[in-house]
Design a binder for these strands. Sequence first.
DNA 1: CTTATAGTTCGATGTTTCAGAAACTTTGGA
DNA 2: TCCAAAGTTTCTGAAACATCGAACTATAAG
Lengths: 103, 103
Amino acid sequence: MDRPDVKRLARQLKALGHPNRLQLFLNLVEESQLDLAKGRTHDCFLAKLLGGLDINAPTVSHHVKELADAGLIDTERQGKQLICSVRPDALHALRALFEPTGT
Amino acid sequence: MDRPDVKRLARQLKALGHPNRLQLFLNLVEESQLDLAKGRTHDCFLAKLLGGLDINAPTVSHHVKELADAGLIDTERQGKQLICSVRPDALHALRALFEPTGT
DNA sequence: CTTATAGTTCGATGTTTCAGAAACTTTGGA
DNA sequence: TCCAAAGTTTCTGAAACATCGAACTATAAG
Protein backbone atom coordinates (compact mmCIF):
# COMPACT_ATOMS: atom_id res chain seq x y z
CA MET A 1 0.00 0.00 0.00
CA ASP A 2 2.86 2.30 0.77
CA ARG A 3 5.18 1.28 -2.01
CA PRO A 4 5.11 4.39 -4.17
CA ASP A 5 5.77 7.02 -1.47
CA VAL A 6 8.26 4.99 0.44
CA LYS A 7 11.11 6.50 -1.48
CA ARG A 8 9.92 10.04 -1.07
CA LEU A 9 9.23 9.54 2.60
CA ALA A 10 12.56 7.87 3.16
CA ARG A 11 14.18 10.87 1.55
CA GLN A 12 12.41 13.23 3.91
CA LEU A 13 13.19 11.13 6.94
CA LYS A 14 16.79 10.99 5.91
CA ALA A 15 16.84 14.76 5.61
CA LEU A 16 15.61 14.95 9.18
CA GLY A 17 17.95 12.22 10.27
CA HIS A 18 20.74 14.56 11.14
CA PRO A 19 20.80 16.39 14.46
CA ASN A 20 21.56 19.81 13.02
CA ARG A 21 18.98 19.56 10.27
CA LEU A 22 16.36 18.22 12.62
CA GLN A 23 16.97 21.08 15.01
CA LEU A 24 16.82 23.56 12.16
CA PHE A 25 13.55 22.08 11.03
CA LEU A 26 12.06 22.02 14.51
CA ASN A 27 13.04 25.65 15.04
CA LEU A 28 11.26 26.50 11.86
CA VAL A 29 8.16 24.53 12.79
CA GLU A 30 8.08 26.28 16.13
CA GLU A 31 8.42 29.70 14.53
CA SER A 32 5.69 28.83 12.07
CA GLN A 33 3.36 27.91 14.86
CA LEU A 34 4.12 31.03 16.81
CA ASP A 35 3.46 33.14 13.79
CA LEU A 36 0.35 31.24 12.83
CA ALA A 37 -0.94 31.71 16.33
CA LYS A 38 -0.47 35.42 15.89
CA GLY A 39 -2.20 35.31 12.56
CA ARG A 40 0.82 36.44 10.65
CA THR A 41 2.54 34.75 7.82
CA HIS A 42 5.10 32.29 8.98
CA ASP A 43 8.38 33.07 7.45
CA CYS A 44 11.72 33.21 9.02
CA PHE A 45 15.11 34.06 7.75
CA LEU A 46 18.02 31.80 8.13
CA ALA A 47 20.07 33.42 10.83
CA LYS A 48 17.07 33.36 13.13
CA LEU A 49 16.77 29.63 12.79
CA LEU A 50 20.21 28.76 13.95
CA GLY A 51 19.25 28.95 17.60
CA GLY A 52 22.42 27.77 19.24
CA LEU A 53 23.57 25.53 16.44
CA ASP A 54 27.31 25.59 16.14
CA ILE A 55 27.85 25.32 12.43
CA ASN A 56 28.94 27.95 10.00
CA ALA A 57 27.48 29.43 6.90
CA PRO A 58 28.42 26.97 4.19
CA THR A 59 27.21 24.07 6.24
CA VAL A 60 23.94 25.77 7.06
CA SER A 61 23.44 26.56 3.43
CA HIS A 62 24.03 22.95 2.59
CA HIS A 63 21.57 21.69 5.19
CA VAL A 64 18.89 24.11 4.15
CA LYS A 65 19.20 22.99 0.58
CA GLU A 66 18.93 19.42 1.74
CA LEU A 67 15.69 20.14 3.54
CA ALA A 68 14.36 22.02 0.55
CA ASP A 69 15.33 19.28 -1.91
CA ALA A 70 13.55 16.75 0.24
CA GLY A 71 10.43 18.87 -0.05
CA LEU A 72 10.22 19.65 3.64
CA ILE A 73 10.58 23.40 3.42
CA ASP A 74 10.16 26.17 0.91
CA THR A 75 12.66 28.94 0.50
CA GLU A 76 12.35 32.30 -1.10
CA ARG A 77 14.83 35.10 -1.41
CA GLN A 78 13.73 38.44 -0.03
CA GLY A 79 16.31 41.12 -0.40
CA LYS A 80 19.46 39.91 1.23
CA GLN A 81 17.75 37.23 3.20
CA LEU A 82 16.51 33.77 2.56
CA ILE A 83 13.05 33.22 3.91
CA CYS A 84 12.14 29.68 4.92
CA SER A 85 8.80 28.08 5.61
CA VAL A 86 7.63 24.61 6.44
CA ARG A 87 5.65 22.78 3.77
CA PRO A 88 2.35 21.83 5.36
CA ASP A 89 1.83 18.91 2.99
CA ALA A 90 5.13 17.40 4.06
CA LEU A 91 4.18 17.75 7.69
CA HIS A 92 0.90 16.02 6.98
CA ALA A 93 2.54 13.18 5.15
CA LEU A 94 4.89 12.60 8.04
CA ARG A 95 2.08 12.63 10.53
CA ALA A 96 0.07 10.21 8.47
CA LEU A 97 3.02 7.88 8.24
CA PHE A 98 3.09 7.18 11.93
CA GLU A 99 -0.62 7.28 12.60
CA PRO A 100 -2.39 4.04 13.42
CA THR A 101 -4.44 4.59 10.30
CA GLY A 102 -1.22 4.58 8.36
CA THR A 103 -2.26 2.03 5.76
CA MET B 1 12.72 22.69 24.35
CA ASP B 2 13.60 19.71 22.25
CA ARG B 3 17.35 19.83 22.68
CA PRO B 4 17.94 16.64 24.63
CA ASP B 5 15.97 14.22 22.46
CA VAL B 6 16.99 15.75 19.21
CA LYS B 7 19.91 13.41 18.90
CA ARG B 8 17.93 10.31 19.71
CA LEU B 9 15.15 11.32 17.37
CA ALA B 10 17.56 12.18 14.61
CA ARG B 11 19.05 8.75 15.02
CA GLN B 12 15.66 7.12 14.64
CA LEU B 13 14.74 9.24 11.67
CA LYS B 14 18.02 8.42 10.06
CA ALA B 15 17.37 4.73 10.59
CA LEU B 16 14.08 5.18 8.77
CA GLY B 17 15.70 7.35 6.15
CA HIS B 18 16.56 4.47 3.92
CA PRO B 19 13.96 3.01 1.57
CA ASN B 20 14.59 -0.60 2.48
CA ARG B 21 14.63 -0.01 6.19
CA LEU B 22 11.55 2.15 6.03
CA GLN B 23 9.71 -0.53 4.11
CA LEU B 24 10.85 -3.15 6.57
CA PHE B 25 9.62 -1.04 9.43
CA LEU B 26 6.30 -0.26 7.79
CA ASN B 27 5.74 -3.93 7.08
CA LEU B 28 6.32 -4.62 10.72
CA VAL B 29 3.99 -1.87 11.84
CA GLU B 30 1.33 -3.22 9.56
CA GLU B 31 1.73 -6.74 10.87
CA SER B 32 1.60 -5.42 14.40
CA GLN B 33 -1.65 -3.68 13.74
CA LEU B 34 -3.17 -6.70 12.12
CA ASP B 35 -2.22 -8.79 15.08
CA LEU B 36 -3.34 -6.24 17.59
CA ALA B 37 -6.66 -6.07 15.84
CA LYS B 38 -6.94 -9.79 16.33
CA GLY B 39 -6.00 -9.40 19.96
CA ARG B 40 -2.84 -11.41 19.58
CA THR B 41 0.68 -10.46 20.36
CA HIS B 42 2.40 -8.80 17.48
CA ASP B 43 5.55 -10.55 16.56
CA CYS B 44 6.84 -11.43 13.17
CA PHE B 45 9.88 -13.24 11.97
CA LEU B 46 12.25 -11.71 9.54
CA ALA B 47 11.54 -13.53 6.33
CA LYS B 48 7.90 -12.55 6.58
CA LEU B 49 8.86 -8.91 6.67
CA LEU B 50 10.82 -8.80 3.49
CA GLY B 51 7.74 -8.39 1.34
CA GLY B 52 9.27 -7.93 -2.05
CA LEU B 53 12.47 -6.29 -0.91
CA ASP B 54 15.33 -7.24 -3.14
CA ILE B 55 18.21 -7.45 -0.74
CA ASN B 56 19.98 -10.49 0.56
CA ALA B 57 20.62 -11.91 3.95
CA PRO B 58 23.64 -10.00 5.20
CA THR B 59 22.13 -6.71 4.21
CA VAL B 60 18.84 -7.51 5.87
CA SER B 61 20.64 -8.51 8.99
CA HIS B 62 22.48 -5.22 8.97
CA HIS B 63 19.33 -3.17 8.47
CA VAL B 64 17.48 -4.96 11.21
CA LYS B 65 20.27 -4.31 13.62
CA GLU B 66 20.23 -0.67 12.60
CA LEU B 67 16.55 -0.41 13.42
CA ALA B 68 17.08 -2.19 16.71
CA ASP B 69 20.06 -0.01 17.66
CA ALA B 70 18.01 3.07 16.98
CA GLY B 71 15.45 1.76 19.44
CA LEU B 72 12.70 1.41 16.89
CA ILE B 73 12.19 -2.30 17.16
CA ASP B 74 12.85 -5.14 19.54
CA THR B 75 14.22 -8.46 18.44
CA GLU B 76 14.22 -11.78 20.16
CA ARG B 77 15.48 -15.11 19.00
CA GLN B 78 12.98 -17.92 18.98
CA GLY B 79 14.44 -21.17 17.82
CA LYS B 80 15.87 -20.61 14.39
CA GLN B 81 13.99 -17.43 13.82
CA LEU B 82 14.39 -13.86 14.80
CA ILE B 83 11.17 -12.34 16.04
CA CYS B 84 10.75 -8.59 15.57
CA SER B 85 8.30 -6.19 17.12
CA VAL B 86 7.78 -2.45 16.96
CA ARG B 87 8.56 -0.48 20.08
CA PRO B 88 5.41 1.40 20.99
CA ASP B 89 7.32 4.11 22.82
CA ALA B 90 9.34 4.86 19.70
CA LEU B 91 6.19 5.10 17.65
CA HIS B 92 4.75 7.52 20.18
CA ALA B 93 7.81 9.68 20.19
CA LEU B 94 7.73 9.94 16.44
CA ARG B 95 4.09 10.84 16.41
CA ALA B 96 4.60 13.48 19.05
CA LEU B 97 7.43 14.99 17.07
CA PHE B 98 5.23 15.99 14.19
CA GLU B 99 2.15 16.91 16.15
CA PRO B 100 1.15 20.57 16.32
CA THR B 101 1.68 20.33 20.07
CA GLY B 102 5.20 19.30 19.31
CA THR B 103 6.82 21.67 21.75
C1' DC C 1 25.70 -37.67 12.54
C1' DT C 2 24.08 -35.15 8.53
C1' DT C 3 21.58 -31.79 6.38
C1' DA C 4 18.78 -27.74 5.81
C1' DT C 5 17.19 -23.45 7.66
C1' DA C 6 17.64 -18.76 9.41
C1' DG C 7 20.59 -15.44 10.52
C1' DT C 8 25.27 -13.40 11.69
C1' DT C 9 30.08 -11.90 11.18
C1' DC C 10 33.80 -10.47 8.52
C1' DG C 11 36.15 -8.25 5.12
C1' DA C 12 36.23 -5.53 0.71
C1' DT C 13 34.58 -1.98 -2.25
C1' DG C 14 32.38 1.85 -3.93
C1' DT C 15 29.24 5.64 -2.65
C1' DT C 16 27.51 9.34 0.14
C1' DT C 17 27.75 12.69 3.62
C1' DC C 18 29.53 16.44 6.84
C1' DA C 19 32.09 20.18 7.63
C1' DG C 20 35.01 24.08 6.86
C1' DA C 21 38.22 27.29 3.94
C1' DA C 22 38.40 30.30 0.33
C1' DA C 23 36.41 32.77 -3.13
C1' DC C 24 32.14 34.46 -5.27
C1' DT C 25 27.31 36.72 -5.81
C1' DT C 26 23.58 39.71 -4.61
C1' DT C 27 21.52 43.33 -2.34
C1' DG C 28 21.15 47.57 0.40
C1' DG C 29 23.06 51.37 2.01
C1' DA C 30 26.98 55.34 2.96
C1' DT D 1 31.48 53.85 -6.23
C1' DC D 2 32.79 51.21 -2.19
C1' DC D 3 31.52 48.41 1.62
C1' DA D 4 29.21 45.20 4.62
C1' DA D 5 25.70 41.62 5.16
C1' DA D 6 23.73 37.15 3.99
C1' DG D 7 24.15 33.37 1.52
C1' DT D 8 26.20 30.28 -2.23
C1' DT D 9 29.64 27.52 -4.75
C1' DT D 10 33.50 24.76 -5.17
C1' DC D 11 36.85 21.88 -3.36
C1' DT D 12 38.84 18.72 -0.21
C1' DG D 13 39.51 15.21 3.31
C1' DA D 14 37.63 12.31 6.91
C1' DA D 15 34.08 9.55 8.36
C1' DA D 16 30.02 6.85 7.76
C1' DC D 17 27.07 3.83 4.69
C1' DA D 18 25.19 0.05 1.73
C1' DT D 19 25.86 -4.06 -0.36
C1' DC D 20 27.67 -8.39 -1.30
C1' DG D 21 30.36 -12.93 -1.16
C1' DA D 22 32.22 -16.25 1.81
C1' DA D 23 32.58 -18.43 5.89
C1' DC D 24 30.37 -19.20 10.38
C1' DT D 25 26.80 -20.38 14.30
C1' DA D 26 22.83 -22.27 16.18
C1' DT D 27 18.70 -24.91 15.87
C1' DA D 28 15.56 -28.40 14.16
C1' DA D 29 14.48 -32.49 11.63
C1' DG D 30 15.63 -37.08 9.71
